[in-house]
Simulated assay, not measured.
Amino acid sequence: MPQLSKIRYCLTHIKLFDDFRPYTKVIKNKEVGHMTTVKDYIATHDDRLNFYTHAITNAHGQNHPEVFAVRGQYIRLRTAVNSDLSLDENFAELRQTTHDYAIPNDVCPVFKATYHMLATADKLNASA
């Protein structure tokens, strides 16, 4: 898929979430203060993270094959949350795969939002 088509794919599919544009500001300014646990955060953002981790595999998988691992790791994280297990190992894997949630220069806003949400969840887990 050419780069422009990948960007269009991401931008077309994020319209399902009306509040996408201010999303990173919402995370930084409001939501973290109101969330009490990482498990609450993951539960609240599960639909979005599930959709986004899938979308970035389609849009960026060819140039960033690590997104396939991120998708699998998110599914395992979600399972751990639902099973009430420790999340430390899951986040350690995500940090390693994403190089501490470093965002490449050639990615769409969905990719960026995905990594921001995962990093926020990781910070909540670390502060627990």
Results as ranks from 00 to 15, higher is better:
Leu4Glu: 07
Asn105Gly: 10
Glu89Phe: 07
Ala59Ser: 15
Arg95Leu: 01
Leu85Met: 14
Tyr23Arg: 08
Gln62Glu: 12
Glu31Val: 12
Asp47Ser: 14
Gln73Val: 03
Arg8Lys: 07
Asp84Glu: 11
Lys30Gly: 03
Thr120Lys: 09
Gly33Ile: 12
Tyr52Gln: 11
Thr114Ile: 04
Tyr74Pro: 05
Ala59Tyr: 01
Ala92Asn: 01
Thr24Ala: 05
Thr12Ile: 14
Arg71His: 12
Tyr101Phe: 14
Leu87Glu: 04
Thr37Ser: 13
Thr98His: 05
Ala69Gly: 00
Thr37Ala: 00
Ala121Asp: 05
Pro104Leu: 07
Ile42Phe: 13
Val107Lys: 08
Pro65Val: 11
Asp106Glu: 14
His54Leu: 14
Arg76Cys: 02
His34Ala: 12
Met117Leu: 11
Leu4Trp: 03
Met1Cys: 00
Ser5Cys: 03
Leu77Thr: 13
Cys108Ala: 06
Glu31Met: 11
Ile42Trp: 01
Asp88Trp: 04
Asp46Met: 07
Asn105Glu: 15
Asp47Gln: 14
Thr79Ala: 15
Asp40Phe: 03
Pro104Ser: 07
Ser5Trp: 00
Gly33Leu: 15
His34Tyr: 15
Thr57Ala: 09
Arg95Gln: 06
Cys108Leu: 05
Pro104Ala: 05
Ala43Tyr: 03
His34Asp: 13
Val67Gly: 04
His60Gln: 07
Asp47Thr: 15
Tyr9Ile: 04
Asp100Glu: 03
Gly72Val: 02
Asn58Ser: 10
Asp46Glu: 14
Thr36Ala: 10
Gln73Lys: 07
Asp46His: 15
Cys108Trp: 01
Val70Glu: 03
Arg8Val: 09
Ala43Thr: 15
Ala126Pro: 01
Ser83Pro: 02
Thr12Asp: 13
Asn63Met: 12
Glu93Lys: 12
Asp47Asn: 14
Tyr115Lys: 01
Ser127Val: 14
Ala119Thr: 00
Leu16Glu: 15
Asp18Ile: 10
Val110Leu: 10
Thr57Gly: 02
Asn29Val: 14
His116Phe: 03
Asp106Ile: 10
Ser5Glu: 09
Val26Glu: 03
Pro65Gly: 07
Tyr23Asn: 06
Leu16Ile: 08
Glu93Gly: 01
Tyr41Asn: 05
Val38Glu: 03
Val32Gln: 13
His45Cys: 02
Asp122Tyr: 13
Ile75Glu: 08
Tyr74Thr: 03
Asp40Glu: 15
Arg48Lys: 14
Lys112Met: 07
Asp100Ile: 00
Lys28Met: 09
Arg76Glu: 15
Val110Phe: 03
Asn125Leu: 08
Ile42Asn: 01
Phe111Pro: 03
Arg21Tyr: 07
His13Met: 13
Val70Phe: 04
Asn82Val: 04
Thr97His: 05
Phe51Gly: 06
Val26Lys: 11
Ile14Phe: 14
Phe20Val: 11
His13Ala: 13
His54Ala: 15
Thr114Gln: 06
Ile27Asp: 01
Ala102Lys: 10
Asn29Ser: 14
Val67Thr: 06
